[in-house]
C-alpha cells in the first residue's frame, strides 16, 4: 500500500508569537519550528498501516526551505521518502494555497491513501485535508480515530459529538484526517536518524501563481484579562452554583 502523509511545520508552542511590522503575520524569522502535532499522529497511523500491510510511506509538505527539518524528522521516524513543494510564499499561504500545491504534487503518484492531521496548531482551519480530497476528486473522512484497510476498502471510525462515534466505509484511494492522540507516537531512533540521511527528499516547484482565497488585513494578539466572580449565598448554595458554572460556563467538568 502506498501512503502519503501531509505534514505542516508550525512554530513551537513554547514560542511567544510576535507580529511583524505591518501586523499581517508573525515574525517567523524569530520562531523555532516543529512538526504540527496532529500531523505527527497521522504519520504514526501511516507507519502502523505500513507495518500491518506493507508498502511505503511518503511524507509531503509545502513550505519554505526550513520545512526539510520536519521532513527529515518524519524520515527518521520511519517514512520512506519525502516530497517537498518548496516556495517561500507557503510560509503564510492559506488553506487553498497549501492544499492546491500538495494535491498537484501528489496527483500523479499512485497513492492508495492520503493521511493528514485533523488541523494545524497555528491556523487551525481544519480544512486542508478536505480540500486536497476535493482537488483529487477522492472520498474523504475527517476526525478519524481508527483506520482499517481490507483489500480495496477503507473502514474508518469518526469522532462525533458527545462521545458518539461513526464507522464509515469507502473505496480506496481516499483521504483521511486523523484525530490527535489516537496512538502513541514513536520516538526517533538513532538507527532511524542515520537511515534518514540516506533517504530521498524530492523538491518540486509549485505552479507560478498561488490561488489565495484569503487575505490577512491585520493580526491582533488576544487580550489577557482576569475577571473574578464572587458567588454569594450559603456555602451549600454557593458550591452548587460553582459546580453549575464550572460545568456550563467554564466547561471544565462534565
Amino acid at each position: 500500500m502506498h501512503i502519503a502523509v501531509c505534514v505542516k511545520q508550525v512554530p513551537t508552542r513554547d514560542w511567544q508569537p510576535r507580529l511583524n511590522d505591518s501586523g499581517t503575520w508573525i515574525r517567523d524569522e524569530d520562531a523555532s519550528f516543529e512538526m504540527n502535532e496532529p500531523d505527527a499522529y497521522a504519520l504514526e497511523a501511516a507507519l502502523r498501516l505500513k507495518e500491518q500491510h506493507g508498502g511505503d510511506v511518503t511524507v509531503c509538505s509545502a513550505g519554505p526551505a526550513r520545512v526539510t527539518q520536519v521532513l527529515r524528522e518524519a524520515l527518521a521516524r520511519g517514512a520512506d521518502r519525502a516530497l517537498h513543494v518548496q516556495d517561500d510564499r507557503f510560509a503564510s499561504a492559506d488553506v487553498y494555497g497549501i492544499a492546491d500545491a500538495l494535491a498537484a504534487a501528489i496527483r500523479d503518484e499512485p497513492f492508495d491513501l492520503v493521511l493528514t492531521g485533523l488541523q494545524s496548531d497555528d491556523l487551525g482551519a481544519a480544512a486542508t485535508g478536505v480540500v486536497i480530497a476535493e482537488r483529487l476528486n477522492r472520498p474523504h473522512a475527517t476526525i478519524v480515530m481508527d483506520v482499517q484497510v481490507d483489500g480495496g476498502t477503507l473502514r474508518v471510525k469518526r469522532e462525533l459529538e458527545s462521545g458518539w462515534f461513526q464507522w464509515v466505509s469507502m473505496p480506496l484511494p481516499a483521504v483521511v484526517t486523523i484525530q490527535s492522540g489516537i496512538n502513541q507516537l514513536r520516538y526517533a531512533t538513532l538507527k532511524g536518524i542515520m537511515a534518514a540521511k540516506k533517504k530521498e527528499i524530492r523538491t518540486v516547484t509549485p505552479a507560478a501563481a498561488i490561488d489565495a482565497r484569503q487575505q490577512i488585513a491585520r493580526l491582533y494578539a488576544p487580550e489577557k484579562g482576569k475577571k473574578t466572580h464572587l458567588i454569594s449565598g450559603s456555602p451549600a448554595e454557593a458550591a452548587k452554583e460553582l459546580v453549575r458554572r464550572l460545568r456550563e460556563e467554564a466547561r471544565v467538568i462534565a
Binding site: Q184, L185, R186, Y187, T189, L190, K191, G192
Partner: peptide, 12 residues
C-alpha cells in the same frame, strides 16, 4: 533504544 525497542513509557 537505537532500534526502537524502548518501553512505551520511555518513548513518551
Amino acid at each position: 533504544v537505537s532500534n526502537g525497542h524502548a518501553p512505551d513509557y520511555l518513548g513518551a
